[in-house]
Design a protein around this nucleic acid. Sequence first.
DNA 1: CGCGACAAAAGTGTTTACAAGCTTGTAGTT
DNA 2: AACTACAAGCTTGTAAACACTTTTGTCGCG
Lengths: 251, 251
Amino acid sequence: MAGKAIPKAASKAALRAANATPRRTKAGLRTTGPRPQGRNRTGALIDALRERIARHEAPPGAKLGELELALEFGVPRTQVREAFSALEQRGLIERIPNRGAIVARLDPADLVHIYDTREVLEGLCVRLATQNVPNVSWQDLLTLFKGPMQTYVEKGDFDAFLEGYAQFRTRSIEATRNPLLTQMLDSIYEKTQVLIRRIIILPGRAQQGLREHVAVLEAMRRGKADLAESLRRENMRSAKDWVLRYQKYVL
Amino acid sequence: MAGKAIPKAASKAALRAANATPRRTKAGLRTTGPRPQGRNRTGALIDALRERIARHEAPPGAKLGELELALEFGVPRTQVREAFSALEQRGLIERIPNRGAIVARLDPADLVHIYDTREVLEGLCVRLATQNVPNVSWQDLLTLFKGPMQTYVEKGDFDAFLEGYAQFRTRSIEATRNPLLTQMLDSIYEKTQVLIRRIIILPGRAQQGLREHVAVLEAMRRGKADLAESLRRENMRSAKDWVLRYQKYVL
DNA sequence: CGCGACAAAAGTGTTTACAAGCTTGTAGTT
DNA sequence: AACTACAAGCTTGTAAACACTTTTGTCGCG
């Protein structure tokens, strides 16, 4: 790895160019321009990074350089720092004093904590959802889970399968109309999203999970909120067992 | 309010003085000095603001000025902004473009959302706590709640009463050994802390809450984790009813 | 006496510049 | 040949200046 020995000229100028924000492709404007948009820029950056972490594009342990991200998104480094502060608060990244930020890692103990907490929150979610909207509004999801989803599993079409799950998730959460719960489930979702693709291919997990979801949906379809809650909690416990049993392959 | 008509000189100089960080009382050092401490400064600022909001020193709707806080804590404005970003993510403050940050307000709908979510999380908390530590370790709290706490209520010594509650809370949360749950309960706690002093003086609430807590503690003392969970949940529902019934006086 | 235009001031959002710390690569010594 | 010491550069932390927006106070007009 000894390398190159690039001389080292132009360091000042290079830094200046790198540190600066590359805005304004227009010609003569020398000022900042009319200010892009209110305060969405940092918010958008936060979301972009959350997405990137959830999608595993930035895997756990990956280093996040302030400069690198600032250049990529075309924002000043201070905004990247603000975003880091928010993400750290959310537990998605870890900041080490003069070393920068890395994507948070999960260890087996974290898995237990996540599933225990998720159990009660997901239970609450389906209970509220069942109570808040007409029973028939679950019919389409029930049909989906009883029909097409079965074939997705058999054929191993995991993308379609996950898409169906995402729908269930989205619909339930929206139906709760509870922003606090939504936020907490989102926070957990971000953490588990990293693993879902490994869990779903565990032997028998997709089939078992599907069976349990059908049961939950049937309870929701019939308006049995408390039953749906306890079925969903059982579902989470079952998922937890699976993950722990195969944890070597998941983490 | 027409006022003063201070001429307006020295604006540039004033701003410069205000915007700058007032570090280093020493004499001739012209640079930043040896860098105070790693990266605790922003973290400390976040905690200080959380505390201030929880204690109602900055009541809901209060404006938080970047400059003001920067001067008060002796940190640069960028750090205040980073702290704001974290607090916003936590839902403790609201940032309005170009207008600054205000302490988040609660409306009646938020109360419902908080109590629904709190119900399942507090239930999980006492269940895990019961499972994780020896039964006898709850004896002292049970004794406290059966004896001294009763007299606090009768005498109207709310400070001592709240102190007892805080102990129960702290002990339960620690016993769960679940950082994620801890974080979520903390997040909720910060929001309700604003109201607790108004709730506790509602007619009959302190007595009823105490009765319910004794029941929960007895279940914990006997190692009945599931029973403790359902009693705690019932306790939260009861608290929610009380708050909603008297919501005009609480909010 | 009220009401609307205008201008200054206050404060937020953004950018640039500089200083300190960690990393890495190289050279010199044992 | 391995190990330590040192120096350069890259990255983070901090400071300060700049640009834009909102607010507020005043003055002129109806």
